[in-house]
Design a protein around this nucleic acid. Structure first.
Length: 419
RNA sequence: GUGGCCGUAGCUCAGCUGGUGGUAGCCCCUGGUUGUGGUCCAGGAGGUCGCGGGUUCGAGUCCCGCCGGUCACCCCA
């Protein structure tokens, strides 16, 4: 273990079956979202610090203590991407994507960086698969994103997930609700913990996040946002639910599910897998009809989510899901004659080009070892060329299942091997 | 950022109350005569006992700091 370097705290190396599982999970996600017209977007790994500072809010934990911010050699203030939505919206505004058919639907699969305390399921560099639909406030988009996620999770065979759903209103109804909530908190201020009292001043909605049992008991009687939505928000929420119902997507309305930032509006949701431990949220999403203004743009509705790749992989592993399969082999080339090697390796390239997964035993191994490797790697056939075969311009093709062998002219080898 | 537990070969682990690092298993390499596998047998490689201080005649074993892991608070994905 005494190496000069190790991976920085909170970062992960991916290799072997875990890397294969990770890729499989992402393959499924891409397929599902592209089936619904979402296209890939890649935004920069770092942005002007303001992009995140302005959107996440000065009071947020992300901005206050979790950003990887730095100055480049020209003194520009930059920050490594802590979340995906702000950069996508910035790109939407910058490139005038409002001139495209709305909504603009994109998916991304990129690393996020947050300087937070590391524990299982929470890392300083983590990957998120996310999707955003910008330019429409149609509740059908909210439901579509959730339903697509449900299909993704089903396709990767993760079960036992809980979908929490809520509407947190908008500028029309939320301020009045917050006043109501604060009034309620003031009535019970003596029964609340110190943190909740602080939240009463800073961000009243977050009191619902308190894990203190006595606080929760008090809050059970608090006014619920879902009972105080304005007509437009109530109809929007009802439409989202109706579409989810019609799609057979199960969810639980959780009035305590909130978002801390002002630009979030209406729909909010989280997928959880409780057995994961403290970091049980697999993904979080919501509508952000106020975000574009924060970036200095015109009012532009949008909705999206970010899903933790590491957490999904962890969940699958803890569920005992089949490990990702490492690339198997169709053909192993065992070239025993040095003179034959150039020609045979050229033929191996042809086999590869023809779609046969092929590899050679390198390092001058004995045939016995090569066959052992071939069977371990699942190769169906082994091409053997020693002095005999080379002299005759042929190769021996061994079927690893039956053990049968036959000689084939080198000119016809690739054709013979092709399925 | 705070607190609990932990850190011996690539991996899984032995190592009693401090006295010279394990024939351990898996993995890797080689061999069991000259070209035949999913076995078996034999051999080999691989460790500054996370790093740095301290206590001691002597520390993998005790103390401190740091690094890393893990769990919880917090926050989120």
């Amino acid at each position: 273990m005494s190496r000069a370097f190790q991976a920085p705290r909170g970062t992960l190396d991916w290799y072997g079956p875990r890397a294969a599982l990770r890729r499989s999970v992402l393959d499924h996600a891409r397929r599902v979202f592209e089936s619904a017209g979402y296209g890939q977007v890649v935004t920069p790994t770092f942005e002007d610090t303001g992009v995140y500072r302005r959107t996440s809010g000065e009071g947020s934990d992300v901005v206050r203590k979790e950003m990887y911010s730095f100055q480049d050699r020209s003194g520009r203030d930059l920050t490594l991407r802590p979340e995906g939505t702000a950069g996508v919206m910035r790109a939407y505004l910058e490139h005038g994507l409002h001139r495209r058919p709305q909504p603009v639907k994109v998916w991304y699969e990129v690393p996020m960086f947050r300087y937070s305390s590391v524990q299982k399921g929470r890392y300083r560099e983590h990957y998120q698969f996310g999707a955003e639909a910008v330019g429409s406030d149609d509740p059908g988009i909210d439901a579509e994103l959730i339903a697509l996620q449900a299909r993704w999770y089903r396709n990767v065979d993760v079960t036992g997930l809980t979908l929490l759903l809520n509407s947190i209103g908008d500028d029309t109804c939320r301020p009045a609700y917050v006043d109501l909530l604060v009034a309620f908190l003031d009535e019970h201020i003596d029964e609340l913990c110190e943190e909740c009292r602080e939240r009463r001043d800073t961000n009243p909605l977050r009191v619902f996040d308190c894990k203190n049992a006595s606080c929760q008991a008090v809050l059970a009687a608090a006014p619920k946002i879902t009972d105080h939505l304005c007509d437009a928000c109530r109809e929007h929420f009802a439409a989202v639910r109706a579409q989810l119902d019609a799609r057979g997507v199960d969810y639980r309305v959780e009035p305590g599910l909130v978002r801390g930032l002002d630009y979030y509006t209406r729909t909010a949701w989280e997928w959880q897998w409780p057995a994961l431990g403290a970091q049980s949220t697999l993904s979080g999403g919501g509508r952000y009809d106020g975000l574009a203004e924060q970036l200095g743009g015109p009012h532009t509705p949008g909705v999206g989510f970010g899903a933790g790749v590491e957490r999904l992989v962890l969940t699958l592993e803890e569920m005992g899901a089949a490990e990702g399969v490492e690339p198997a082999l169709d053909v192993m080339f065992a070239v025993l004659d040095d003179e034959a090697r150039p020609r045979l390796h050229a033929l191996m390239d042809e086999a590869r080009a023809a779609g046969l997964r092929s590899d050679a035993a390198y390092g001058g191994r004995r045939l016995k070892r090569t066959l052992e490797l071939a069977s371990r790697r699942g190769a169906g056939r082994v091409v053997i060329v020693g002095e005999d075969e080379w002299g005759a311009g042929e190769a021996t093709v061994r079927d690893m299942g039956s053990g049968e062998q036959r000689r084939v002219a080198l000119d016809a080898l690739v054709g013979e091997l092709a399925p």
